[in-house]
């Protein structure tokens, strides 16, 4: 085990205050309820195209991003991006309105589920090409270092993207130039329909940086406090100018790869087992109750979050589509 793994195993779970734990719980629940609603709206035909839900993986984005400094650290991910945006405090209304393709959407209706950005929140997408966000994230990290702004980049990608060549090109340069970046592999077990063991010669993804001397850490991605503890170790290491860290977050998605995926490649029992025994939200809820939180208080929270999501959905359904002339705007920034 290398130093980072030892540091993590010394304190595998973050000692969250009640307030912090409650916040993690609320954020995870918001993502869960948001995604459930997005799934419904998809079924109603209000959301089109590809829509990849984050249900089951909530603890990853919430735990990791809680360790970042939103004022200076950038985040970038692939197409399964709703959860990362919500975890970075972006208004659910403008995300949902983007999913329904409305002018009030965060990309003014021109991006859709896979292409959302918020420079204000240092969220740089939302990228539809598998693996592209890894090189782009290394570029964001390059910019942090160039500007000497003290920030770092967190670049998320999946177990599927981990087999793309540019990931390793980026690992090489990030390590060579000691870029401030945390590479996060969200290993949910399946690259669309292909199980990890059918696609990957090395299924322990945290080892994938070894050839570039990038330290790796395997992390239980179903426990928000374990995730946060690992994030602290990684952030401290990267912030100190040591170069990149590779985190493998072992997680699970309950839904199909996208809304159009029947997920025939795995058994119902496998999914049910994860839901029943490893759900990150249930887990946090049990812990809150153990710490003395009442069931009524938790119900109130659930009610409040449902109301927030309903308001976002109403907003997304009722706000107008982009005006036709918007078709031609923002192709280029300047006029020539």
């Amino acid at each position: 085990m290398d130093a980072l793994q030892i540091a993590h195993s010394a304190q595998p779970r973050y000692a969250a205050s009640d307030e912090e734990l409650l916040k993690f719980y609320e954020q995870m629940l918001l993502i869960r309820r948001f995604e459930e609603r997005a799934g419904q709206l998809y079924g109603l035909g209000l959301i089109g195209g590809f829509c990849h839900l984050y249900i089951g993986q909530e603890a990853v984005a919430v735990g990791l991003q809680s360790a970042l400094d939103g004022a200076r650290d950038s985040v970038i991910t692939g197409y399964r991006d709703h959860g990362h945006m919500l975890a970075y405090g972006i208004d659910p209304k403008v995300i949902m309105a983007e999913l329904t393709g409305r002018a009030a959407g965060i990309s003014q209706g021109k991006g859709g589920s896979m292409h959302m950005f918020s420079i204000e929140h240092k969220f740089y997408g939302g990228h539809g090409i598998v693996g592209a966000q890894v090189s782009l994230g290394a570029g964001l990290a390059f910019a942090h270092r160039y500007r000497e702004d003290g920030g770092l980049c967190m670049a998320y990608f999946g177990d599927g993207a981990a087999n793309q060549g540019q990931v390793y090109e980026s690992f090489n340069m990030a390590a060579l130039w000691k870029l401030p970046i945390i590479f996060v592999i969200e290993n949910n077990g399946y690259a669309m329909g292909t199980a990890v063991k059918r696609s990957s010669a090395e299924t322990h993804f945290y080892r994938r940086g070894a050839a570039f001397r990038i330290p790796g850490m395997p992390v239980n991605g179903m426990d928000v406090l374990e995730v946060r503890a690992a994030a602290n170790v990684a952030v401290e290491y990267v912030r100190a100018g040591n170069g990149p860290v590779l985190l493998e977050l072992n997680t699970y998605r309950y839904r199909g790869h996208s809304m159009s995926d029947p997920a025939k490649y795995r058994s119902r029992e496998e999914v049910q087992e994860m839901r029943d025994k490893h759900d990150p939200i249930d887990h946090a809820r049990d812990e809150l109750m153990k710490r003395g939180m009442s069931e009524d208080a938790l119900k109130d929270i659930d009610k409040r979050i449902r109301a927030t999501v309903s308001a976002a959905a109403d907003f997304a359904e009722n706000s107008p589509e982009p005006a036709p002339p918007e078709l031609y705007t923002d192709v280029l920034v300047e006029s020539y």
């Binding site: 990309s107 003014q108 209706g109 991006g111 950005f117 420079i119 923002d330 920034v333």
Partner: peptide, 8 residues
């Protein structure tokens, strides 16, 4: 730039 509604 287009996909981000002129934001990025």
């Amino acid at each position: 730039n287009y996909m981000s509604g002129g934001q990025m």
